[in-house]
Design a protein around this nucleic acid. Structure first.
Lengths: 123, 123
DNA sequence: TTTTTAATGCGAATTCATTTGCATTATAAT
DNA sequence: ATTATAATGCAAATGAATTCGCATTAAAAA
């Protein structure tokens, strides 16, 4: 049977607080604000069970590599700010599926990664 | 001074023949059709110099990892066929930049990865 | 409380992609 | 042809991300 530990709660808090895709490094760093002793192996172990439970999703960012985000957000895309290096989830979709692929290709899904400067860095 | 070797020529032929983004594994496998002794280290060494020369580009596919494609193709996106596992370059762009990101985000670039079934696998 | 054992922390181990050292091969200059 | 050395093949080394073994800690059941 599973137990509710302070480090597991810390991870949940990290995702709730940041509300954006996070790297293991960010999760560890921010998680330690809640539990100072938080260990990397513990982060990996909990991320794995959270993915299995369906609580979070693993995504593969072309620049930042593996990131984790809260599941159940619906279709969205990812914006990477080159200034603060954070990734944001952008609701909605600006892709015209008719123009996306030529005739003959059967498109079943897509991922869009945007790059630029986020609102707080653009000020 | 640099020398023209059969393995270097083989790599160029591979990219010309396939005309799509290729993994190191695919490059090695196809390259061996030209030079049977072709070694993985040689592939890596030549890919590196080709990238430095600007002949090819390295891309990072969210599913397939590192791929290499001929440079100078202009803006395009990538379609990954789940049946044959090949990636194709799709000319053009179906992204409406106004709808892509909310107000406040300064978008400077984007990458789109499409998933589905390619024309030859869809038949 | 006391007990049971799931979960943690730590460091070592593993995995996978890529790089490197070095003896050998082969291009191209002489 | 002969020679100099760039490039190759091979295997070992590296690096980064992730996983694992195990003693210890701490939830929560008794």
């Amino acid at each position: 049977m599973k137990r509710k530990t302070s480090q597991r709660t810390a991870l949940e808090n990290v995702f709730d607080k940041e509300d954006r895709p996070l790297s293991v490094e960010e999760i560890l760093k921010t998680g330690r604000e809640y539990v100072g002793s938080l260990n990397q192996a513990t982060v990996y172990r909990n991320l794995k069970t959270m993915v299995e439970k369906g609580a979070i999703l693993q995504i593969n960012h072309p620049v930042l590599g593996t990131l984790y985000e809260l599941a159940g957000k619906g279709h969205h895309h990812h914006f990477h700010c080159r200034v603060c290096d954070r990734v944001f989830e952008l609701p909605g979709c600006g892709l015209d599926s008719r123009k996306a692929a030529p005739k003959g290709f059967v498109t079943e899904g897509h991922e869009i990664f945007l790059f630029g400067v986020c609102p707080s860095c653009a000020d």
